[in-house]
Amino acid sequence: MRGYLDAPEATAAAIDPAGWLATGDVGTLDATGRLYFVGRTKDIIRVGGENVAPADVENTLHRHPRVRQAVVVGVPDERLVEVVFAFVVLTEPGTTEDELIAWARTRMAGFKVPRHLRIVEGFEEIGMTASSKVRKNRLAAHARGLLAQRDDEVPA
């Protein structure tokens, strides 16, 4: 792409001086040169100076035999700026939130492990798009509400 029609400011913001289009996609290359999409820069969770792609955490959680669906968002944290909050739908009951966090801890870097995890029945009440994707902005607001509610319940 050479640029946006009649929009030089938008073109300058999207295309760097070397001619590369900044799409906002985040990926990794493996040893054979294959490119893997891992998320979007706007979706990145910044945990204590480390960047965490929600898709990376979700993919790891999906490898658990009882996880049907995992959706991850960032929530504010006093010390680390943000931390990972995972919402998980199970294929069958019998796994606890603490067990899933412990399982994840053995499979990913410590800063990627969800600090908060909630097992849910589904995401319909929180909000889905017409294409059946979870509305992450609503899910993040829901997660912040859950944390605020928990903080309100702690005796002073």
Rank of each mutant, 00 (worst) to 15 (best):
G3N: 04
A10G: 11
A10I: 14
A10R: 15
T11K: 03
A14L: 08
A14N: 02
A18S: 10
A18W: 04
A22H: 09
A22V: 12
T23A: 01
D25W: 05
D25C: 02
V26L: 07
V26A: 07
A31C: 11
F37R: 09
G39E: 06
T41W: 00
I44H: 01
I45D: 08
R46D: 09
E50I: 00
N51S: 09
P54V: 05
A55V: 03
E58F: 02
N59K: 12
R63E: 15
R66V: 01
R68T: 14
V71K: 08
V73G: 09
G74V: 11
V75Y: 03
E78T: 11
E78S: 15
L80A: 06
F85Y: 12
V88T: 14
V89A: 00
V89P: 00
T91F: 09
E92T: 09
E92D: 14
A104P: 02
F111C: 09
F111I: 03
P114M: 10
P114H: 02
R115S: 06
L117F: 09
L117A: 06
V120R: 12
E124A: 12
A130K: 06
A130N: 06
A130H: 05
S131W: 03
S132D: 07
K133N: 02
H142K: 04
A143S: 05
L146N: 07
R150V: 10
A156E: 14
